[in-house]
Write a protein that binds this DNA or RNA. Structure first.
Length: 459
RNA sequence: GGUCCCAUCGUCUAGCCAGGUCAGGACACCAGGUUUUCAUCCUGGGAACAGGGGUUCGAAUCCCCUUGGGAUCACCA
């Protein structure tokens, strides 16, 4: 704080700063008027006209005030930006902006210039929304005699619909849902009444991250992934996200798209940054993640998957034969989460498996000249007699059954089994699935499934 | 509205600065194929220089205009 004050004093000494006493209300009206007259709003420098005595007097009376920067006379202003190139603007476009607020703290513009200069910052990379601010910054640097850092303004990232991708998107998603479904109040025990009321009062009041997450869960709303941690939780690898993000606005050329951090460190250069904004394409990120997962060795995949499960899906982390769980899912997962989604039946109780009707289910169990269901007893019987319970023995047992019951068509016996144990048509390869489940659970589920449909058919 | 920025397949982009190959790749999409499900995997396909003027023997590339998109205009950072 003392440092800011000290720098401010230098500006006063040079006659480049002055006190202003207008209230926010007054300024707001000025602004409105300017807008109505279709011209840009400029501060009118009224306080600059005040005599030193009046200023002194006002200060003594404790009149609320700010400190403004006095934009010096001169020609056009030019910023040289590494990405955008030279940008020139008329000096009159820059307002006598506030550098110290009514509360006695410096504004962002002032603080950032002092901070950067005193910390010897050489490169400023930031979003393109700051491009216009840069003029204020170079004016301040000139006034304080600071060296100008190298600027690079990076284009923004958009959602597929063209809107700016922002951390506010979660809030927007929730609001939309609440509005469209006429949700009057927060579901029990997730957001306090007060918080809800504040939130609903204005769209400028965002819910806390915690509350937002709880509310989304309670309402069953899918929040978009925005924060880095959201992507981690969704099962993406951090290095893939980095890779993809870099590609949104930069490329090494030579048709190279997938690379690691080392490559980036070596090849990255500001002059290859693309000027135009990019849309965030989740499908491509997903494809990149798949490629990266497939490149991992069995061991790497297993340890990374385990780490992910421990953090986000503990039920899976405690799977007995985790190694098999990992290998069975390696090839077919696009994200770490995929493995847990398509294998959710593994962590359910046998009694919790249900068989909601669906096309593939009907096809596998109920349709055909000889239905899958009718083969079930023979399958249960054969499995019951299996002494060793591993992928090889199960597969060969299944093959034999296929030969015997379905002209060697393995799908005709494997698919009913899959549905019976998983409750749906999707699972890892059947041998691995059954080993993971264990003989007891497998038989239990097969029997339950058979009974369930047998009684349903009778009725 | 003022000011500033941007513009190549649906999407991300290479090519542009130092005009001259069928405008290249990736994702997505479509069609085949492999596979016990899902996914993976393999092969093939369609797909773009926003529009109009210039400059030039020649323009995606240089210049101008139009159109479209975006940012910003705070006692927020």
């Amino acid at each position: 704080m003392d440092i800011y004050k000290e720098q401010l004093q230098r500006l006063f000494d040079a006659g480049l700063a002055y006190y202003a006493f207008e209230t926010p209300k007054e300024l707001g009206e000025e602004r409105k008027k300017a807008r109505a007259e279709k011209r840009a709003y400029r501060y009118n420098r009224a306080s600059l006209e005040l005599s030193p005595e009046t200023v002194e007097q006002n200060l003594k009376e404790g009149k609320p005030h700010v400190v403004r920067f006095k934009v010096p006379e001169g020609g056009a202003l030019t910023v040289t930006d590494c990405v955008v190139g030279e940008v020139t603007v008329a000096r009159t476009e820059v307002d006598d902006f506030v550098i110290f607020k009514g509360d006695g703290f410096p504004t962002f513009h002032f603080a950032v210039i002092v901070d950067d200069a005193l910390m010897n910052v050489t490169h400023v990379l930031r979003g393109q929304e700051h491009l216009n601010n840069t003029f204020k910054h170079i004016l301040l640097q000139e006034a304080l005699g600071f060296e100008q850092p190298t600027y690079a303004h990076i284009s923004l990232i958009f959602n597929p619909d063209g809107s700016k991708m922002s951390k506010r998107d979660k809030d927007k998603t929730l609001r939309k849902f609440v509005r469209e479904n006429n949700v009057e109040s927060a579901p029990e025990s997730c957001v306090s009444e007060d918080a809800w009321a504040t939130w609903q009062a204005s769209k400028d009041n965002q819910l806390s991250t915690d509350d937002a997450t709880k509310l989304a869960l309670a309402l069953g709303v899918e929040l978009p992934e925005i924060n880095v941690d959201d992507f981690k939780q969704a099962g993406y690898m951090p290095e893939v996200l980095l890779n993809y993000l870099c590609l949104l606005g930069w490329s090494p050329g030579n048709d190279v798209e997938q690379f690691d951090a080392d490559f980036l460190v070596e090849k990255f250069s500001l002059d290859r940054i693309v000027k135009s904004p990019a849309k965030f394409d989740r499908a491509k990120l997903l494809a990149f993640n798949l490629d990266a997962l497939q490149k991992l060795s069995q061991e790497e995949f297993e340890s990374k998957l385990l780490a992910w499960c421990q953090e986000y899906a503990p039920a899976f982390a405690s799977i007995e034969n985790f190694s098999l769980f990992a290998s069975a899912n390696h090839e077919r997962s696009k994200t770490f989460r995929d493995a847990t989604v398509t294998s959710s039946f593994l962590v359910k109780d046998d009694e919790a498996i249900a068989w909601p009707e669906s096309k593939p289910l009907k096809k596998a169990l109920l349709k055909g000249e000889v239905s899958g269901l009718s083969r079930m007893p023979a399958i249960i019987e054969a499995f019951g007699q299996l002494e060793t319970w591993n992928a090889e023995s199960i597969d060969s047992c299944l093959n034999a059954l296929a030969e015997e019951l379905a002209d060697g068509n393995l799908g005709k016996v494997a698919q009913p089994v899959r549905i019976a144990v998983a409750g749906g048509p999707v699972s890892p390869p059947i041998g691995d699935t059954l080993v993971l489940l264990g003989k007891e659970s497998t038989l239990c589920r097969l029997t339950r499934c058979h009974d369930f449909f047998a009684s349903a058919c009778d009725a």
